[in-house]
């Protein structure tokens, strides 16, 4: 019976290619697809079968019916528009049928790069709320009340004791309160600064902070970790420098610059992150003994990295979400 089906298909193919008029087309339809046509007979025969190969035959027969129907319809359409089947011409240069494409925002893509590097270094990833208490955002992090250090970060206050977090450091506080050392984690997330919008600054941005607390942590190790990070992100030969700085929650503190050269422009040092050894006051605030445990922490801004990487000179472009901009980053 399989032979019969195969022959039917071949016969159909030959006949349909040779036909010349729509009358002949109707003849073919009746012959193959009609109520008493060849396929219908084949189905009648099939129902009477009993052998083991019945399922296979059934499947083949079904497929044959589909194929013949499809081809017939195609030719039928062509005839309607006055083309003969023998005029079939395949234009392979037609564009492929489109499916939808989308993209992750470059902030996400840049963040992913950073996260992947630190995942590889054995860091966990924690998140925390954006509307935070003054305690978690400042006090626990050794920002004295009424100290100019608070001016470093213009803050959106929503009440005397609550604010939009100015950095992801409060997640460090939450983590250290919740879990005991050893701790090794990065905390990505949105942070807010009460600043007027300009090409250089936006009222929110994304930060990745890292924290490691263990018994034998040193500044040299912090340096090693961050150098490795910079090399993975900016290439093995990246030129970097660590310089002293000030953050209330680390002591000693440093900032890391890399040497940045753009074609046609003079090279310059660019700050990429801040870091330091967790201030003993911070450890005390979360109930960790600073004589026993030492920690290091670091933080970086994601937007800044994205701007640098793609040569974008206005941070507001990242938040305008112009589709013409977003479409440029389908692949990066």
């Amino acid at each position: 019976m399989l032979e019969q089906i195969k022959k039917t298909l071949t016969d159909f193919d030959t006949e349909i290619l040779e036909l010349n008029s729509s009358d002949e087309l109707e003849t073919i339809r009746i012959k193959y697809l009609g109520r008493k046509g060849i396929l219908s007979q084949l189905f009648d025969d099939f129902r009477k079968l009993t052998g083991n190969d019945k399922p296979i035959i059934g499947k083949t027969l079904n497929q044959a019916k589909i194929d013949i129907t499809n081809k017939f319809n195609q030719v039928f359409e062509k005839f309607k528009s006055g083309t003969k089947a023998s005029d079939f011409y395949i234009d392979l240069s037609l564009p492929g049928r489109k499916s939808l494409v989308g993209s992750k925002h470059i902030i996400t893509q840049t963040l992913d790069e950073v996260k992947n590097i630190f995942k590889g270094l054995g860091f966990s990833i924690y998140e925390g709320p954006e509307l935070e208490s003054d305690y978690n955002n400042f006090e626990a992090l050794n920002f004295p009340d009424d100290h100019p250090a608070r001016d470093m970060q213009d803050t959106f206050f929503v009440s005397e004791k609550f604010l939009m977090r100015t950095h992801t450091s409060p997640v460090q506080i939450r983590l250290m309160k919740e879990k005991k050392p050893p701790l090794r984690a990065i905390m990505p997330g949105k942070v807010y600064r009460n600043e007027a919008l300009s090409a250089k600054s936006y009222c929110l941005f994304h930060q990745v902070e890292g924290l490691l607390v263990d018994t034998d942590v040193t500044f040299a190790e912090l340096k090693g970790t961050l150098v490795s990070f910079a090399q993975q992100l900016y290439g093995k030969d990246v030129k970097y420098r660590f310089r002293a700085s000030f953050f209330p929650f680390t002591e000693p503190s440093a900032e890391v610059d890399i040497w940045w050269e753009q074609q046609g422009k003079e090279g310059r040092w660019l700050e990429i992150l801040g870091c330091g050894m967790v201030d003993p006051n911070v450890l005390l605030n979360v109930g960790i003994d600073p004589e026993k445990y030492i920690g290091y922490a670091f933080g970086m801004g994601v937007e800044r990295m994205a701007l640098l990487k793609y040569g974008i000179d206005d941070i507001r472009l990242l938040f305008d979400n112009d589709i013409r901009f977003l479409k440029q980053f389908i692949s990066v």
Binding site: S99, L100, V101, G102, S103, K104, H105, I107, T108, E130, F156, M164, K190, Y192, C203, L204, L318, F319, N321, I323, L326, K327
Partner: peptide, 11 residues
Amino acid sequence: LGFFEIFSNSM
């Protein structure tokens, strides 16, 4: 599914 990610201002 063909969507583009956006980040809009929370403020």
